[in-house]
Amino acid sequence: MSQTSFTIEQFYKYLTEGKLMAGKCTRCGKIHLPPRPLCDNCFNNQFEWTEISGKGKLVTYTVIHIAPQQFQAMAPYAVGIVQLENGLKIPGMISGVAPEQMRIGMELAIDFGACSTAQPWPQWPRYCFKPL
């Protein structure tokens, strides 16, 4: 059993180490990405960390032109939902591909590049997805 708690904060801390980590329920085996304190399947509160492959396929995407203040300098930017190899989905920005080249089903991999230069906690590191 890991000493670290299964929190969103810990999920983001692992990103700074270049790891995409999920919580696996010790009772029913359900994998939670992000980790949760309570299994929504069996209500168990015991988990173990499991590293997830950051490769997957783009399920859907959009290019955001009207952004909130903090993202305005980046607009337009692409975001999408990626289905990872283990079937779980996570959202994120997509970079390294022109909007007109983007297509549903394309293979992407998580990129931790920006995570190492992230501000100290509680500024979360921002991973993104890039074409394989």
């Binding site: 969103i8 992000p34 859907t60 995407y61 959009t62 955001i64 993202f71 549903i104 979360w124």
Partner: peptide, 24 residues
């Protein structure tokens, strides 16, 4: 917040993700 807003996904952005999936 921690996964959608944090990654710059706006409210129209969420509905755009669904619209795109529906069109596809």
């Amino acid at each position: 917040y921690p996964f959608e807003q944090w990654h710059g996904i706006t409210f129209p952005g969420l509905f755009a993700l669904m619209a795109k999936a529906h069109m596809h």
